[in-house]
Amino acid sequence: MEETDLSHLGQLLTYATGSGAQVAIWVAPEFGYEHAQALHRLNKWTKESIRFFGVKIEVFKKAGDEHLEARFRKVVYPGGWNKQVTLPSGEMPATKRQYYEFFQPLITKLRGEGFADKAVNYFDHTGRFFPSRLDEDTGYAVSFWNNGAWVSLHVRTWDSIERNNRIFDELQKAKPEIEESLDAEWVWHRFGPHSFFTISIRRDSSIDDSSEKLEETRGWMLDQLPKLKKSSIRTWSGS
């Protein structure tokens, strides 16, 4: 399955009218803003007995369960639509499209493995952030920056600079153990006086690399994220 496009919309309408269906359901992993808006307007323009639905499908794995499960989220339904879960309006600029196509398979795999419930844009469009289930402002990120690919732990405790510093200090005490768990170039950065710090690993890479090199980088990110999470979560959650 792939994100929605105009040909899919045309096929949906053709098949629905050809079969005399009164309910049409469009299922896709991503909905473009314009396509979701079109379904919403069809619901407004047609009589009440004819209904259109847009449904986003996500695949995830529950913690401790090896089986994949599907989760369905309503994007369009009679009487409303959820704009927040659609892709940006208009044709994506070429550069933004590069990042989207790189990160989307990574996000799908991480969701399927139960690593995180969602991903949000990070550093505009050059990275993705996976919020912790415990705190929306804390989590893990992958990004391209400064001629490198990065995997990072981000901790933000806006309510307490003291708590932020305590967590960072506790992690630093375990620094040899954490760094030994991953063979990588490490960067520890406390953003004082703000309640924010990052612990990151890096490798040389660019979004303009060859498809083979980008595949290697994606595989590296997928390998490093769970390891970074495992090596840091015990100290972090205990602070």
Rank of each mutant, 00 (worst) to 15 (best):
E48T: 13
S49P: 03
I50P: 04
R51D: 00
F53Y: 14
F53E: 06
G54A: 11
V55A: 12
K56H: 09
E58C: 04
E58V: 09
F60S: 14
G64E: 06
D65L: 01
E66H: 09
L68Q: 13
F72T: 00
F72W: 06
R73I: 15
K74F: 13
K74V: 04
V76R: 03
Y77G: 09
P78Q: 13
P78K: 15
G80V: 05
W81G: 08
W81P: 02
W81S: 06
N82V: 15
N82H: 15
K83Q: 15
Q84L: 12
Q84Y: 09
M92W: 09
K96F: 10
R97F: 08
R97T: 06
R97M: 14
Q98W: 10
Q98V: 09
Q98N: 13
Y100E: 11
E101P: 00
Q104K: 15
I107N: 05
T108A: 14
K109G: 09
R111Y: 12
G112L: 06
G112V: 09
E113Y: 00
G114L: 00
F115V: 08
F115W: 10
D117R: 15
K118D: 04
K118V: 12
A119H: 00
A119G: 03
V120T: 15
V120H: 03
V120K: 10
D124K: 15
H125S: 14
T126A: 07
G127Q: 01
G127W: 01
F129K: 06
P131S: 12
S132G: 11
R133A: 08
L134K: 15
D135F: 02
D137K: 02
T138N: 11
G139F: 08
Y140A: 03
A141G: 10
A141I: 04
V142I: 11
